[in-house]
Design a protein around this nucleic acid. Structure first.
Length: 858
RNA sequence: GCGAGAGUGGCGGAAUUGGCAGACGCGCUGGACUUAGGAUCCAGUGGGGUAACCUGUGGGGGUUCGAGUCCCCCCUCUCGCACCA
């Protein structure tokens, strides 16, 4: 009988679906296990990254079912987003049609991979039944002040009629319109107040032991809490006061000038009518327009311009100049800094460039720091000098007292500052969830009444040929009436960032059909939190942080009881492959290369670096071709065996070949010996096995132990598979050996084979189901419990002990398992090879490691 | 510049807690079977050496009876970034 995955795999997929084996229902009597993989954007076809992500998840889901858990394993679609708009313009279709066609195609592919999803819970975020609840939550957040509107500066491309992210700006121009200079536009945008929860999110980083340290560190750094002081500098000749934030209030006596960020609202105000007005305005415009993207680049010269105004250093009462500087960021702190050139390198460089005053306020331990001879800022510790009442104190010790002093004099106060900024959610896009707000000329910004939700995104619109949202040009959408005065009003035409949808889809999976509100309390409380979340490392910050924020918001609105959405997190590495390039035809897809030559011009291609698979690099492999050729099981097996999930996976086509070969070997192991295997029952534990059988029996149980630990504790499927390969090899060896195959022998073989099949089921479910049937079982492996290993079977009568002399391996001995350290030591010293290496040298010390190793030091 | 990771045979990787470096697989070499082999099976395979043995986890130091693993310095690569005051 030949192994034919194309016939066998769809058959089992139909069987699982018909039997409803992956359906999940709330059951208080069973322990729940919510396993989630990050849902895909419906781009059209699944890619290898999806295959890897969802295979990892599927193994865990199937494993947990076999462990008796009530498993929820849902799948859905992150269906709003820009690619749909672009594709719609290119192909003259509608984003909705494009999206739903893609969903249909990708769903078929996922089913062909045999993933064990409960498709009854499928959701698409572009469905009004989904986003209506998001709109409701937005209104609740607006009510609580958690959603608010403010002006921001954004990169704007006139051609796209859209805001660009920094990474979409290349050399000051739009990435898609390289002749179009990007302008800085001031714009009203909606924000969610993630900063209100920053402290809590930060604190809980310590309470997520199931998350990779790496991700938590990144999140902590992103939130970036720092302790410092807010210090007020009165503007000379005015009532105005400039607020600055510093973490170094110990250096306040050394602040000899002050710098504004170019965007700071006070700048325009204080330069009005001064001779410097024009120069400053030009500088601000230049920095904003041309340099706003490179201000964050690796290497930027610090530069600025004098405003013509002065302020008063509140502690020295000195009049100090005010500058606008490119290195000060409006988003951080207060957008203005006190500059201490002697103790901050950037300030030092700036002061040197513009000939500004320096004052040393921290003396170094050598006591030889002088402003005249300094060549760089002194950022170390030391005693305060030139600091009035604080002279002589150690600078770090004075942080607290200076803050208190400032507060007592009304010049400032101790405070905390966060790096993280509020979450801007306004997008000038069509294919997104409308923000449920109307603007009334009389009443102002008005929330859409709850009873009028959802604000449905109209589907009968044509896309604008140059891109940009059609909504602001569609009166049937934006024309509306004020919910209060019934007068003329205009609807908000911005839509929400798609990260909003992905911040709570995991909650909605628990009750996708619920119509009374966003979440059914009974069901969401049963399933949440997600026990295991699996997805790409690229989401380490934004998506995961937003989800943690949104979960807290939903909790405080009373929709949820949990604080953290994901108990455990597995971040998988990227799938990488080398790029291939032809001199004339540029980057090539793998199918455009044959025998190292470009198929278009038959010239040799250049092989590039191994980088993340992406369409833009053309180094992609279409999984569909591999499924058609080898079947889903082979592909699943390769993704898992090639490397542990958290590491990058380097793709090679041969790998699929060898995993196919292993499955064929497994197939033949059962089919070639079916008669012997079916003629006996499983081996029942009893004494008196001959050593050859005993070691196979032991190997079976060692494998069960190893595979269970690898899956359960660390998701190392590659070593789990290696262990099963060893077991299969050992069975083959045994069957090829001279040992007589009596009834007992076959029962031990059957035990080994069945263990191999069951252990492999989560990894390659189709072939194992088939083999399981062949072995005479009636029930699906889905309903078969995970095997337990027997401690008795693992017991060995002899232990191998490694003998070292001075830490170098010199010999190995076998000792009875019951030997104690003293007996092992005696036998080690008596070993011939050990005597050879220790001959004539006094033994200084002997270290015995419990039944493992003896090290003799001479 | 800042932050986070990584570096082990010809290759992917293993070594879970400081205790046999290289499991498992690929590739390669030899053999068997075969009309044939890019199928299958068996054996071998870090490097050097006939051997005893020596040597070996990016480089250099250190801790330790013992280091791929811990500490310090350096090199290279990858990822993230908002000059973080």
């Amino acid at each position: 009988m030949k192994y034919d995955p194309q016939k066998l795999e769809p058959m089992w997929q139909v069987y699982w679906e018909k039997e409803g084996l992956f359906k999940s229902a709330e059951d208080a009597s069973k322990e729940k296990y919510y396993l989630l993989e990050m849902f895909p954007y419906p781009s059209g076809k699944i890619h290898i990254g999806h295959v890897r992500n969802y295979t990892i998840g599927d193994v865990v889901a199937r494993y947990m079912r076999m462990r008796g858990k009530n498993v929820l394993h849902p799948m859905g679609w992150d269906a709003f987003g820009m690619p749909a708009e672009n594709a719609a313009i290119e192909n003259n279709t509608h984003p909705a049609k494009w999206t739903f066609d893609n969903i249909t195609a990708m769903k078929k592919q996922l089913k062909r991979m045999g993933f064990s999803y409960d498709w009854d819970r499928e959701l698409a975020t572009c469905d009004p039944k989904y986003y209506r609840w998001e709109q409701l939550v937005f209104l609740k957040m607006y009510e609580k002040g958690l959603a608010y509107r403010k002006k921001t500066h954004v990169n704007w491309c006139e051609s796209c009629q859209s805001v660009l992210a920094n990474e979409q700006v290349e050399d000051g121009c739009c990435w898609r319109h390289t002749d179009k200079e990007v302008i800085i536009k001031e714009m009203d945008s909606w924000f969610l107040k993630i900063t209100d929860y920053a402290d809590d999110i930060l604190e809980f980083c310590e309470k997520l032991p199931g998350w990779p340290d790496r991700v938590l560190t990144m999140q902590k750094n992103w939130i970036g809490k720092s302790h410092g002081a807010l210090i007020r500098f009165p503007l000379d000749g005015s009532d105005e006061v400039i607020e600055t934030f510093t973490t170094r209030q110990d250096t306040v006596y050394g602040a000899t000038f002050l710098c504004f960020a170019p965007e700071h609202p006070l700048v325009k105000k204080i330069i009005k009518g001064l001779p410097q007005e024009k120069e400053v305005t030009n500088f601000v415009e230049r920095i904003l327009k041309i340099e706003s993207f490179v201000r964050t680049a690796d290497f930027t010269t610090k530069e600025g311009v004098f405003t013509g105004r002065y302020c008063i250093n509140p502690v020295t009462e000195e009049r100090i100049p005010i500058f606008v500087a490119n290195f000060v960021l409006i988003e951080y702190g207060t957008g203005a800094i006190m500059a201490v050139p002697t103790h901050d390198q950037r300030d030092f460089e700036f002061a040197k460039k513009y000939g500004l005053k320096l004052r040393v306020v921290i003396q170094n331990p050598d006591g030889n720091l002088e402003k005249e001879t300094m060549e760089e800022a002194y950022v170390g510790q030391g005693a305060l000098v030139n600091s009035g009442p604080f002279n002589g104190q150690q600078n770090l010790a004075a942080l607290e007292s200076i803050a208190e002093y400032l507060e007592s004099k009304g010049m400032g106060h101790k405070t905390e500052n966060f790096r993280i900024r509020d979450w801007g959610i306004s997008r000038q896009r069509y294919w997104g969830a409308p923000i449920p707000i109307v603007y009334c000329k009389k009443c102002g910004t008005m929330p859409v009444p709850e009873k009028d939700l959802p604000v449905v995104l109209p589907l009968d619109l044509d896309m604008r040929p140059n891109g940009g949202s059609p909504l602001p040009f569609e009166p049937s959408f934006y024309k509306t009436t004020c919910p209060v005065c019934k007068g003329e009003a205009r609807r908000e035409t911005d839509t929400m960032d798609t990260f909003v949808e992905s911040s709570w889809y995991f909650d909605r999976y628990t009750c996708p059909d619920y119509e009374e509100g966003p979440l059914d309390p009974n069901r969401v409380d049963y399933w949440m939190p997600v026990d295991q979340y699996i997805g790409g490392i690229e989401h380490a910050i934004l998506h995961l942080l937003y989800s943690r924020f949104y979960t807290r918001v939903l909790r405080d609105l009373g929709y949820l009881k949990v604080t953290e959405p994901f108990t455990k997190l597995l971040t998988q590495g990227m799938v990488c492959k080398e790029t291939q390039e032809c001199k004339t035809h540029g980057l090539l897809y793998p199918f455009e290369v044959k025998d190292g030559l470009c198929v278009h011009c038959h010239t040799p291609i250049k092989t590039g670096n191994i980088v993340k698979m992406s369409k833009s690099k053309r180094n992609v492999v279409d999984p569909q071709g591999l499924i058609d050729q080898y079947g889903a099981d082979t592909l699943r097996m390769f993704c898992l065996f090639a490397s542990p999930p958290d590491k990058d996976l380097e793709w090679n086509d041969q790998g699929v070949e060898w995993s196919s070969r292993f499955l064929t070997r497994l197939w033949r192991l059962v089919t070639d010996h079916l008669e012997g295997l079916k003629g006996t029952d499983l081996y029942k534990e009893q004494g008196g096995l001959p050593e050859s059988l005993k070691s196979l029996h032991r190997k079976t149980h060692q494998t069960i132990k190893k595979v269970t630990g690898d899956i359960e504790n660390r998701f190392h499927f590659n070593t789990a598979i290696a262990a099963i390969m060893e077991l299969v090899n050992e069975v083959n060896h045994f069957l090829n050996s001279e040992v007589k195959k009596d009834q007992t022998a076959w029962s031990v073989v059957r035990e080994a084979v069945e263990a191999g099949v069951v252990l492999l089921f989560p990894i390659v479910p189709h072939i194992t189901e088939e083999l399981w049937r062949m072995l005479g079982h009636k029930k699906s492996l889905v309903e078969t419990p995970w095997p337990e290993y027997s401690g008795a079977a693992l017991e060995e009568q002899k232990k191998l002990v490694v003998l070292q002399v001075n830490g170098k391996l010199r010999s190995k001995i076998e000792v009875p398992a019951f030997y104690g350290d003293a007996e092992i030591e005696a036998q080690a010293l008596a070993d011939e090879r050990i005597q050879h290496f220790t001959k004539g040298k006094p033994i200084r010390k002997v270290i015995v490691v419990q039944k493992k190793l003896v090290n003799i030091v001479v």
